[in-house]
């Protein structure tokens, strides 16, 4: 390969777990670096500042990965800057693609969130009710600023055009490897698609009942949560009454959660052809409820259905926040 591919990583409103998934490639990352040149990785790994990105020529970066959702005006600004500097922009991980768990913040007002975070937690001591504010004048002369808080969480594609999406919270490192391989060899799907193996979690799940001849329509009479018992290791969780989003979620993770007895909650993103993840999850779960009692027990056990069905996808939903 004549010239190295210039890549950049930008963390917005996320936890940097997606970047850990890149680091988790370990020695494979070392091999990949023969083909890649990291020109920007902030604010986590490299010692570069935002103004270094702003100083780059437009289109200088070949492939940019953005992880994390959009909540602050700084996120909006940096996403726009990165879009200008990058030829290809990837929404990396479910936060950038669909909003992620932080997207559930849109079900609460700013007041609720701030009082929880800065006042009412048991480990917080804040007698003067000091909240972060975008501007603060210290000693009458230092005008300090903080990024301003937007009224709701947004996904990356609500701010800028996104070329590819990668799901996962975080993306499984084996999938990151596949994705980086596809980028290096330029074997990419059409723009605007997800980089995925195209299979549902059930397809890669070892519990899939069709593998051992127990397939067929699933109907449950009662709904269980993980606190209600320990599921059988080898039986489909839906057949046991534990609600799992495997049927409608992309299985790039290889069914990692199912391998350790945890139901899928949909971080992989929706299987192709579905635009509203939570609504699809509702349809899928409703179709296995065999009686009104089962429906009633679901609603009793999951007090907030918006947070249940839209665990990772609320900002991308038809109704992206609470009215």
């Amino acid at each position: 390969m004549s010239e190295k591919l210039k890549v950049g990583f930008l963390l917005l409103g996320g936890c940097a777990g997606c970047e850990m998934a890149v680091v988790d490639l370990s020695e494979k990352l070392v091999d990949a670096l023969a083909h890649l040149e990291v020109v920007f990785w902030a604010p986590t790994v490299a010692d570069v500042k935002y103004h270094d990105l702003e100083a780059m020529d437009d289109g200088y970066i070949d492939v940019a990965f953005i992880d994390g959702m959009i909540r602050l005006d700084e996120h909006i600004h940096m996403a726009k800057v990165m879009r200008k500097k990058a030829k290809t922009l990837i929404a990396f991980g479910v936060c950038a693609a669909l909003g992620g768990t932080a997207g559930m913040g849109s079900l609460h007002t700013k007041e609720e969130l701030f009082s929880k975070a800065f006042k009412n937690t048991t480990t917080t001591d804040n007698p003067d009710n000091v909240y972060p504010s975008p501007h603060c004048l210290v000693d009458g002369k230092y005008d300090l600023t903080l990024p301003a808080y937007e009224d709701k969480v947004r996904t990356l594609n609500q701010i800028v055009d996104v070329d590819y999406y990668i799901g996962g919270c975080p993306p499984h490192h084996s999938h990151v490897e596949v994705a980086i391989g596809a980028l290096v060899t330029k074997q990419l799907p059409p723009k605007g698609s997800w980089i995925t193996n195209g299979k549902a979690v059930c397809d890669v799940c070892k519990r899939n009942p069709t593998r051992n001849g127990n397939g067929g329509r699933i109907m449950v009479d009662k709904v269980l949560r993980m606190v209600d018992g320990i599921p059988d290791d080898n039986v489909c969780l839906l057949q046991q009454g534990y609600l799992c989003f495997g049927p409608i979620t992309q299985g790039d993770c290889g069914g990692s959660c199912l391998n350790v007895n945890i139901p899928c909650r949909g971080c992989g993103g929706p299987i192709p052809g579905n635009e509203d993840y939570g609504a699809q999850a509702l349809t899928s779960i409703a179709s296995i409820l065999g009686s009104e009692d089962a429906t009633a027990s679901l609603m009793e056990k999951y007090p907030n259905l918006a947070k249940f069905f839209y665990r990772y996808a609320l900002p991308s939903g038809t109704l992206p926040r609470k009215m």
């Binding site: 509702l282 179709s287 429906t295 609603m299 907030n304 259905l305 918006a306 109704l319 609470k322 009215m323």
Partner: peptide, 17 residues
């Protein structure tokens, strides 16, 4: 199926405000 779905949906839209 409609009944199951709409029961859940009406709770969902209530949770959405």
């Amino acid at each position: 199926k409609t009944k199951n779905r709409m029961d859940l949906l009406s709770k969902l839209i209530a949770d959405m405000g």
